[in-house]
Amino acid sequence: MTSPDDFDQPFPTGEANDAFAQYFTGQSYLAPLAGGSVPVSNVSFEPGCRNNWHVHHGSAGGGDQVLLCTAGSGWYQAEGEEPVSMVAGSVVRVPAGTKHWHGAKADAWFSHLAFITPGEGVSNEWLEPVTDEVYGQLSTNDGK
Protein backbone atom coordinates (compact mmCIF):
# COMPACT_ATOMS: atom_id res chain seq x y z
CA MET A 1 0.00 0.00 0.00
CA THR A 2 1.79 3.11 -1.20
CA SER A 3 -0.97 5.68 -1.36
CA PRO A 4 -3.49 6.90 1.21
CA ASP A 5 -6.13 6.30 -1.47
CA ASP A 6 -5.44 2.55 -1.14
CA PHE A 7 -6.09 2.63 2.61
CA ASP A 8 -9.54 1.27 3.48
CA GLN A 9 -11.04 3.33 6.30
CA PRO A 10 -14.49 4.71 7.14
CA PHE A 11 -13.47 8.41 7.18
CA PRO A 12 -11.75 10.64 4.65
CA THR A 13 -7.95 10.51 4.68
CA GLY A 14 -7.75 14.24 4.09
CA GLU A 15 -4.89 16.30 2.77
CA ALA A 16 -1.19 16.02 3.53
CA ASN A 17 -0.71 17.44 7.03
CA ASP A 18 1.84 20.01 5.87
CA ALA A 19 0.97 22.59 8.55
CA PHE A 20 2.23 20.20 11.25
CA ALA A 21 4.87 18.33 9.21
CA GLN A 22 7.66 19.65 11.44
CA TYR A 23 6.18 17.64 14.35
CA PHE A 24 6.04 14.31 12.48
CA THR A 25 8.56 11.76 11.25
CA GLY A 26 7.06 10.59 7.95
CA GLN A 27 3.89 11.69 6.19
CA SER A 28 0.58 12.21 7.95
CA TYR A 29 -2.79 13.33 6.62
CA LEU A 30 -5.49 15.41 8.31
CA ALA A 31 -9.24 15.44 7.69
CA PRO A 32 -11.24 17.77 9.95
CA LEU A 33 -14.64 16.12 10.55
CA ALA A 34 -16.45 18.40 13.01
CA GLY A 35 -15.85 21.85 14.43
CA GLY A 36 -17.31 23.60 17.43
CA SER A 37 -16.28 23.28 21.06
CA VAL A 38 -15.03 19.70 20.55
CA PRO A 39 -13.46 19.56 17.09
CA VAL A 40 -12.84 16.06 15.75
CA SER A 41 -10.27 15.18 13.10
CA ASN A 42 -9.26 11.99 11.35
CA VAL A 43 -5.47 11.69 11.38
CA SER A 44 -3.87 9.10 9.10
CA PHE A 45 -0.23 8.01 9.23
CA GLU A 46 1.72 6.27 6.48
CA PRO A 47 3.69 3.18 7.59
CA GLY A 48 6.46 4.25 9.99
CA CYS A 49 5.05 7.75 10.51
CA ARG A 50 4.74 9.02 14.07
CA ASN A 51 4.34 12.35 15.77
CA ASN A 52 6.81 13.90 18.20
CA TRP A 53 6.47 13.58 21.92
CA HIS A 54 3.93 16.17 23.03
CA VAL A 55 1.74 17.30 25.92
CA HIS A 56 -1.83 18.58 25.87
CA HIS A 57 -2.42 21.12 28.61
CA GLY A 58 -5.68 22.25 30.13
CA SER A 59 -7.63 22.70 33.33
CA ALA A 60 -11.26 22.68 34.47
CA GLY A 61 -11.72 19.31 32.75
CA GLY A 62 -9.98 20.33 29.54
CA GLY A 63 -6.93 19.07 27.73
CA ASP A 64 -7.57 15.31 27.82
CA GLN A 65 -7.05 13.75 24.40
CA VAL A 66 -9.07 10.80 23.15
CA LEU A 67 -7.78 8.64 20.29
CA LEU A 68 -10.18 6.21 18.58
CA CYS A 69 -8.42 3.92 16.09
CA THR A 70 -10.59 3.47 13.01
CA ALA A 71 -8.25 1.53 10.70
CA GLY A 72 -4.82 0.00 10.44
CA SER A 73 -2.39 -0.59 13.26
CA GLY A 74 -0.39 1.84 15.35
CA TRP A 75 1.24 2.71 18.65
CA TYR A 76 0.45 4.97 21.58
CA GLN A 77 2.99 5.47 24.33
CA ALA A 78 3.03 7.68 27.41
CA GLU A 79 6.40 8.59 28.87
CA GLY A 80 7.61 5.94 31.31
CA GLU A 81 4.90 3.46 30.32
CA GLU A 82 4.76 0.42 28.06
CA PRO A 83 3.62 1.05 24.46
CA VAL A 84 0.01 0.24 23.59
CA SER A 85 -0.75 -1.49 20.30
CA MET A 86 -3.79 0.06 18.63
CA VAL A 87 -6.03 -1.56 16.02
CA ALA A 88 -9.47 -0.65 14.71
CA GLY A 89 -11.75 -0.27 17.71
CA SER A 90 -8.99 0.61 20.20
CA VAL A 91 -9.58 3.69 22.36
CA VAL A 92 -7.01 5.55 24.43
CA ARG A 93 -7.66 8.45 26.82
CA VAL A 94 -4.60 10.62 27.38
CA PRO A 95 -4.99 12.71 30.54
CA ALA A 96 -4.01 16.39 30.26
CA GLY A 97 -0.36 16.91 31.14
CA THR A 98 0.78 13.46 29.89
CA LYS A 99 3.87 13.42 27.68
CA HIS A 100 3.12 10.95 24.87
CA TRP A 101 3.32 10.13 21.17
CA HIS A 102 1.33 8.04 18.67
CA GLY A 103 1.77 6.81 15.13
CA ALA A 104 1.71 3.93 12.66
CA LYS A 105 3.54 0.66 12.99
CA ALA A 106 6.47 0.21 10.61
CA ASP A 107 4.50 -1.96 8.16
CA ALA A 108 0.95 -0.57 8.42
CA TRP A 109 -1.12 2.50 7.76
CA PHE A 110 -2.89 3.84 10.85
CA SER A 111 -5.85 6.18 11.32
CA HIS A 112 -7.46 7.54 14.43
CA LEU A 113 -10.07 10.09 15.31
CA ALA A 114 -8.63 12.62 17.74
CA PHE A 115 -10.26 15.16 19.95
CA ILE A 116 -9.39 17.22 23.01
CA THR A 117 -11.85 17.81 25.84
CA PRO A 118 -12.76 21.49 26.18
CA GLY A 119 -11.83 23.46 29.30
CA GLU A 120 -9.62 26.32 30.37
CA GLY A 121 -6.15 26.98 29.05
CA VAL A 122 -6.24 24.17 26.49
CA SER A 123 -3.03 24.10 24.45
CA ASN A 124 -0.56 21.71 22.88
CA GLU A 125 3.19 21.65 23.49
CA TRP A 126 5.29 19.90 20.84
CA LEU A 127 8.53 18.34 22.05
CA GLU A 128 11.38 16.21 20.66
CA PRO A 129 10.95 13.53 17.98
CA VAL A 130 10.64 9.86 18.91
CA THR A 131 14.07 8.53 18.03
CA ASP A 132 14.54 5.85 15.37
CA GLU A 133 16.15 3.70 18.08
CA VAL A 134 13.12 3.86 20.39
CA TYR A 135 10.67 3.41 17.51
CA GLY A 136 12.70 0.58 15.97
CA GLN A 137 12.53 -1.44 19.20
CA LEU A 138 8.74 -1.20 19.15
CA SER A 139 8.32 -2.13 15.52
CA THR A 140 10.49 -5.25 15.84
CA ASN A 141 8.96 -6.73 18.99
CA ASP A 142 5.35 -5.63 18.49
CA GLY A 143 5.42 -3.91 21.85
CA LYS A 144 6.03 -7.01 23.95
Rank of each mutant, 00 (worst) to 15 (best):
M86Q: 10
H57F: 08
S123H: 10
Q137G: 14
P12D: 13
T98R: 10
F24D: 11
F11T: 01
Y76H: 15
S3N: 07
G48H: 07
F115P: 01
S123G: 13
V84D: 10
V38Q: 02
Y23D: 10
G26A: 06
H56L: 05
A88N: 02
G136I: 06
A78H: 03
A19T: 05
D132E: 15
G48V: 01
W53V: 01
G89Q: 05
N51V: 02
T25F: 01
T13G: 02
A88H: 02
G136Y: 07
T131V: 09
G119W: 03
D64W: 00
Q9P: 06
Y23S: 06
E82H: 10
S28H: 06
A71Q: 06
Y135T: 03
E46H: 01
A71E: 04
G103R: 06
A19V: 04
G63Q: 09
G121S: 11
M1C: 04
H102D: 12
G119H: 03
E46W: 00
F7Q: 00
S90G: 09
S3V: 00
P47V: 01
F7S: 01
P10Y: 03
E82W: 04
P129C: 06
H54T: 09
E79F: 10
G72K: 08
T98H: 12
Q9R: 08
V38N: 00
R93E: 15
K105D: 15
K99C: 13
D6K: 00
R93F: 09
Q77E: 10
E128L: 05
N51L: 04
V130N: 14
H54V: 04
R93P: 11
G97I: 03
I116M: 08
H112N: 12
G80C: 09
G36P: 09
D132H: 07
P47D: 12
A21Y: 00
G63R: 07
G74T: 06
N141E: 13
G26M: 04
V84M: 13
P95A: 12
S59C: 10
E79L: 09
E81C: 10
N52D: 13
S37R: 03
V130W: 13
G103A: 07
T131S: 15
G61N: 10
S73E: 14
W126P: 11
G48D: 13
S90Q: 09
F45Y: 13
M1I: 00
A114W: 05
P12K: 04
K144G: 14
M86K: 05
W126E: 13
G143L: 08
A108V: 02
V94I: 15
H54K: 08
W101M: 06
A96Y: 09
G97S: 08
H112T: 06
M86N: 09
C49H: 02
S44C: 12
L33G: 10
R50D: 11
V43K: 12
G14A: 05
G58D: 13
F11W: 05
G121R: 07
G143A: 04
N124Q: 12
A88V: 02
P129N: 12
R50S: 12
S28E: 08
G89M: 03
S139D: 15
W126M: 12
P4L: 07
V134R: 07
E120I: 02
V134D: 15
